[in-house]
């Protein structure tokens, strides 16, 4: 009887489940419009450093526009794209360059990360440039009669 039990197939005994819990480094993106509204449920594609054409991972952002993943250890510049209805942004992170536990910066490839005052000043500069252009061309050429 004991011999028969020992000779039984392995899976019959395989009822135990094991979980290894460990701490690891991960990458988190926060995708949002420049109005502050999150890109909720946006589609995310992660591109590994050695294959910028084929996504290594795809997924969706949460309701707050966040998405996290753990790179597989390949060092180099990872690209992460979040898009929804033709809007979106591409972010990059250099993985492996930082020491474990050190904060790694994720730069969104968009100059939209400006505050309200900066936007106001930038808009004023462009508007003034347009007004200057209008004033310049409003002058009539020399010798032209009936200047406006």
């Amino acid at each position: 009887m004991a011999l028969a039990l020992l000779a039984a197939p392995g899976p019959v005994l395989g009822h135990a489940a094991l979980i290894d819990v460990m701490e690891t480094r991960a990458v988190t993106i926060h995708a949002r419009y420049d109005t502050g509204q999150p890109l909720a449920e946006a589609q995310v594609a992660v591109f590994a450093p050695d294959d910028p054409r084929t996504p290594w991972l795809t997924g969706r952002t949460d309701a707050d526009g966040r998405f996290s993943f753990v790179p597989d250890g390949r060092e180099g510049r990872w690209a992460i794209q979040a898009r929804q209805a033709g809007h979106g942004a591409m972010g990059y992170i250099t993985w492996g360059a930082a020491e474990p536990g050190e904060a790694t910066m994720l730069a969104l490839a968009s100059p939209a990360a400006t505050d309200g005052l900066q936007r106001l000043v930038l808009a004023a500069c462009v508007v003034w440039a347009c007004i200057s252009t209008a004033l310049y061309f409003r002058r009539r050429p020399a010798g032209h009669k009936g200047a406006r």
Binding site: Y33, A123, C130
Partner: peptide, 25 residues
């Protein structure tokens, strides 16, 4: 050209005017 320059400014600024249309704008 003066009118085009001024309307360019109006067009440029217009993209900053967001109109909320839930759930987007």
């Amino acid at each position: 050209v003066p009118r085009a320059a001024l309307m360019t400014a109006v067009f440029f600024v217009a993209s900053l005017v967001h109109i909320p249309v839930p759930p987007t704008s």
